[in-house]
Nucleic acid binder design. Sequence first.
RNA 1: GCCUGGGUGGCGGAAUUGGUAGACGCGCCGGACUCAAAAUCCGGUGGUGGCGACAUCGUGCGGGUUCGAGUCCCGCCCCAGGUACCA
Length: 861
Amino acid sequence: MSSYDPSRIEKKWQDYWLENKTFKTPTDHDKPKYYILDMFPYPSGSGLHVGHPEGYTATDILARYKRMKGYNVLHPIGWDAFGLPAEQYAVKTGTHPRITTERNIIRFREQLQMLGFSYDWDREVDTTDPNYYKWTQWIFLKLFERGLAYEDEQPVNWCPELGTVLANEEVIDGKSEVGGYPVVRRPMRQWVLKITAYAEQLLNDLDDLDWPESTKEMQRNWIGKSIGAEVDFAVPAHNEKIRVFTTRPDTLFGATYMVLAPEHHLIDIITTDEQRDEVNTYKEKAANKSDLERQELTKEKTGVFTGAYAINPVNSAEIPIWIADYVLAHYGTGAIMAVPGEDERDWEFAEKFELPIIRTVQPPEDFEGQAYTGDGPSINSAFLDGLHITDAKTKINEWLEHNGVGKKSVNYKLRDWLFSRQRYWGEPFPIIHVDGEPKAVSVDELPVTLPEVDDFQPTKTGEPPLARAKNWIETTDPETGKKALRETNTMPQWAGSCWYYLRYISPDFDGGPVKPAEENYWMPVDLYVGGAEHSVLHLLYARFWHKVLYDCGVVSTKEPFQRLVHQGMILGEVEYRAYEIDGKIISAEDAAGIEGVKRIPLSETDVEKKEERFVMKGTEISVDARAHKMSKSRGNVINPDDVVERYGADSLRLYEMFMGPLEQVKPWSTKGVEGVNRFLNRSWRLFLAGNDNEWRVTETEPDREQLKVLHEAIKKVTGDIENMRFNTAISALMIFVNEANQWDSLPKEIAETFLILLSPFAPHIAEELWSQIGHKESIAYAEWPEYNEEYLKSDTIELPIQVNGKVRANIKIPADKVKDKNFVIGLAKQNKNVERHLDGTVMIKEIFVPGRIVNLVVKPA
RNA sequence: GCCUGGGUGGCGGAAUUGGUAGACGCGCCGGACUCAAAAUCCGGUGGUGGCGACAUCGUGCGGGUUCGAGUCCCGCCCCAGGUACCA
């Protein structure tokens, strides 16, 4: 036996778990189940970073805990392996993305196994595996059959540098998220999924989910439901009408002009000859602006008059029609009625272009602003006068419907999902084009596999890379024997991650994406842990697919993920920086916005805290003190491999959980890792101590005090794991070890229970000591202990005594007397310090909370 | 601007239903062991005053409710993440 040496024991147990398939998912359905899921990683070339093990350790602790509590646990992992980096690497080097991807997966798998996670490695899924994407394609066909997948010409973000189209979410500040290349808008034939058909369900079903409120709120805002009305404004000169959507139909009498989005289809028809040049120029400018530029210029409203007039249906007033880019083509009907009196944007526009403003809601007397958006009685509104907003809306909606010029209407911000990419490394669409019409590939021909190509770049004409595979594209329709062309777009990375949680349930099933009997048992996912950056897109898309699969009868639950938790980001170590200019150090607050300022790194010993800020030691010069996001360019990335090599996987796991609450953003501290490593050393020495590593576990009966210490730990650790408060659970284990270190020996019963408590957090050391005690079986299925209330009781209880709310003494009360008010207060009054504070006062009130506190309220005599 | 979190020692963080603020860890200070160092062990550690017993201040700021507020209420300030002309 030797001292604690993680490098010696960790590999040994990892091999043991793999060989014995310790964490194979049970196939019986006799016990309660617990499905605990991690967001699967994209296997990038740079390997695991310390952010991955954070969420993965949390779920692993829970998985191990639930197994010991007698649950059947499904805890799988896999690879979200389609993606742009492998493809860009292929374009550069000619290496097939499959090669890169396989290499990265091997590395990721090794790294995850090195951390001792209890995944069932027989259920690994890989989105790039044809046996997997066969079912991604199958699900797409379901969408297609149901009319939820359609082709459309859409203005898309074309990135010439990458030679591909990017989704909005991949474009940041007008540049590509990957590489930072410029992006332009260009119309293109695309596949689109009709997620809007599920808008209402996606919104309503959020209510019953145990998710962070912020995430639910973000999804609600993204869906963006608003209730209002559609109103038609006639354009008599052209016998046309313009439909608008408004949330304030009650303000219709205040609509003094209309505005169309520059892309609106009626503009060319209604524009008068005098205005035509000006309108065309404006349209052209708007079209050439990127989304970003259009947003940037929001401060100043711009617009042009079309020369045309529409008729306000409520009062037959003739109002001018303008175009302006503050009206968005893709929201509502792409046209608005402008009500400057009650809308700030319209007010601003009206003022600039000297358009009339009529208030139709009476603002309060002290109101000094411009547009008034609050509630109040209607004015200048004929039959609506006097009614407040809600009633006015009801009445006008009735009027609109009765007169056939409008009706109540619901509108969503959510738009259909652009689902195709002009890339190689993605799932091919199971679609052929016959006579120019898209047609589903029959199910028994799935999967449609990726063809080999000579080059991974798009073609010169901008066609996707698959267009290079001539033999693959040209095919025949087996039904009609006609010539057919395969779809050359591929699916986005989201596709594979939309349903992977189902494939884990029956990874080898060949009758569908998931085996019904198994699905019925395992779904829904009981706990899903992953980054908050997926709050909207991944989680919304996956919910959408799940609902479609529910409607197809493939799954039995309406929602996939019952409980969701986001782990917080881990930042680099805290850095201290001074600012220097021309050789002089200046205060951080003075450095803002000054050119040529250099930032000088300082060590912790160079700085001190002065009131609210950090300064250079002995000066008034303030410095920056903060932790930053880990990034290669900053050079503050912590590599988990290095941490494991120095301190072992158990220390890394323990530290990541001990840093603070899981959900919180927190800075890394190497000293902190050393702290938990010391704790593991101390734990080891509970069992093996002294120079000759004497075995300290004895067959003796534990005493009362030892049981108390142990059962306090059981209670705290159990409750904390249930509530995912791992940091305080670890602190309870530390308290136990600190106490136990003072004992002469360690009774076996206590030793074993402690190891069980420790094992979800630090499984390698727990297995090792468990086997040294003499167990032949893994600790993984040991029974989780229950605490016994009896042992937690003590003979005396310390009770704080307050006088006027300030603690003046702590007194010891025999346990059987704690509820005896007279006894306790009597004892309290005898305490010297209490007596001193009661001296010369009159008692007003005696507060007695049994076992908690005594507060004597007095006033001067 | 809006939405969602969050401000507690030198640092990461604890604190059940409103009931001893600062658990646990880091760092720091002192001591033991050692020729010495590392490792380890023991003790101390919110500020101020006091030899001490104690006293006093203290959970972003200003009010309030309460016998009692980090926790509840009202009004602000600051930080982080998300989002942005959504009619």
